[in-house]
């Protein structure tokens, strides 16, 4: 059987990796994917907690899974927005270095 705190631990480690990736990455693609990693870490925690408190037969708990579904949808929207920003960025300044994008 899987211990609950190992699921949460995996989620925490993945979150840390994602945040550090956001901090060190300068390339647009690496940045967006690192942010997605943090989303995924939170999803893992949500599903884990929902499995930990599943409710009983009379009243099942769905909160965590519903949250994950919403997060996945929002994250897909975020990536699509990122891609279209990337498109216009690439067209206008022929490069996707985010530190230079503000200049």
């Amino acid at each position: 059987m899987i211990p609950e705190h190992h699921v949460i631990g995996l989620s925490a480690i993945l979150f840390a990796i994602g945040v550090l990736g956001v901090l060190v990455r300068r390339n647009f693609i690496g940045l967006v994917l690192s942010i997605a990693l943090t989303f995924n870490a939170s999803n893992l925690a949500f599903v884990g907690f929902n499995r930990f408190w599943p409710g009983d037969e009379a009243k099942l708990h769905w909160d965590g899974q519903v949250f994950v579904a919403v997060v996945i949808a929002v994250a897909a929207a975020q990536v699509v927005m990122g891609l279209s920003v990337l498109f216009s960025m690439f067209r206008n300044r022929n490069g996707v270095d985010i530190d230079e994008a503000g200049a």
Partner: peptide, 21 residues
């Protein structure tokens, strides 16, 4: 849902971005 959306939408969009840049 996870595999469908992340690998079907996000991963593809990012591979597309890789091709672009």
């Amino acid at each position: 849902l996870q595999i469908l959306v992340w690998s079907g939408v996000t991963g593809l969009a990012m591979v597309f971005a890789v091709m672009l840049v």
